Amino acid sequence: MKNFTIAFLVFIIWSFFGLWFYHWLQQDTMAMYTETETGNTPEAKTAAEYAKERLPLRIENEAPDIVDSPNVAEANAGLTATTEEGDILFRYPENIQIKKNSATVYIPTNTHDFKYKLNSYLLEHTNTELVVVSKYSAEENIESPNYGTQRAQKIKAILIDAGIASQRIVIKPHITPIEFNLDNSYDKAFSFTIQPLDLKRVENIKKAIPETKTIYPRFSSSDILNSPALEKTLQEVVRVFEANPTLKITVVGHTDNIGNATDNYLRGLEFAKQMRWYLVSKGNIDKNKIKAISEGESQAIANNNTEKGRTLNQRIEIKFSEE
């Protein structure tokens, strides 16, 4: 009995000691855990500072993904030409500028060679055509044709002068909200797209060109004499240009064979020049769109041996073309 009592007391003492030791270890472990979590140890503090120092560098070098809205895209838009697949042929930092309620276009100096680049591409790719996209605003004055078309026609004329065939240029006015500058200017008005050549459209254009007009005006020694027939011709030509502003005119003077061929050539040229002057001054047609030439006596349509035949041969032809 005595031995049992001693053994039981020893067990109680060691149990108490064991419980105390376990409790002490738990408190020390919790203290270490707390120090690590709060960064009070030298190692934890250094790591936190390192992460803090690296964070701005990571943000600076890893810009977030941005999806351009139409406004952002427009803000970065210079004068651009793209293929139908979206490949960029060229991009200039500056675009062609327009003015509100005006058909005038302003081309920056460092953009002037755009026409040659487009011409070179079209020469190398004969099965393609060029689309001129021209923006205009619903806030602008109502015009017919609209300002988008009028401005694009100015660009088309420049492209034709650079050597691009008129039939391969398509005008596409695009009405869209425009935020004009304080001076009413806007410098993101144009873009170019290359697409497959529409042969049917080209054929329709050829069919739409008006037929040659033949007139028999009367002339004084120094001027063309006005007449109802001449005024009617003028009105018809003006209407043609209103519908097709990119057309050009060749005025051809013809004569009979009275006199020598050289004199008749000069007389026919004088007829053509007077008719050209009449169309420019009375019809307000751009003089650069009309040229005067002479065929003299070389293209007779009637017998010069009769007065009626000679009268028919003394004529003026007005020919329309896209070139």
Rank of each mutant, 00 (worst) to 15 (best):
E129P: 01
Q26E: 15
L182Y: 14
T306I: 02
F241S: 00
T34D: 11
R91N: 13
K319M: 03
I249V: 08
A243N: 15
V237G: 08
F320G: 02
P64N: 11
I12V: 10
T176M: 10
N264W: 02
A208V: 03
K156M: 11
L247W: 03
H254N: 13
E140P: 02
I171C: 03
L89W: 01
V133K: 11
P108M: 06
L122A: 08
K200T: 13
E85W: 14
E129I: 02
G259I: 03
Q195L: 07
Y186H: 11
W277L: 04
T233C: 10
Q97T: 06
Q153R: 12
Y92F: 07
P70V: 06
Y33S: 15
F219S: 05
S321P: 10
Y136N: 05
D87V: 12
Y216S: 02
K200E: 12
L279D: 00
I194G: 00
Y22K: 08
E85Y: 15
G283Q: 02
T214A: 04
H174G: 10
N264C: 05
I209C: 04
T149S: 11
L247F: 10
L230K: 14
Y116D: 11
K115R: 06
I293E: 00
W20H: 14
S15V: 06
T311S: 15
I224D: 05
R91S: 09
T233Q: 12
A272G: 09
H23W: 12
T82L: 04
A243V: 04
T80V: 14
R315Q: 08
R201Y: 07
G39I: 01
E317Q: 13
I205S: 08
I164H: 03
E53H: 14
V252D: 00
V72T: 14
T193E: 15
L234T: 06
K207M: 05
Q97W: 12
T214G: 04
F271S: 02
T255N: 08
F90C: 05
E62W: 11
N260R: 05
A7I: 01
F8G: 10
A162I: 07
V252I: 13
E35C: 11
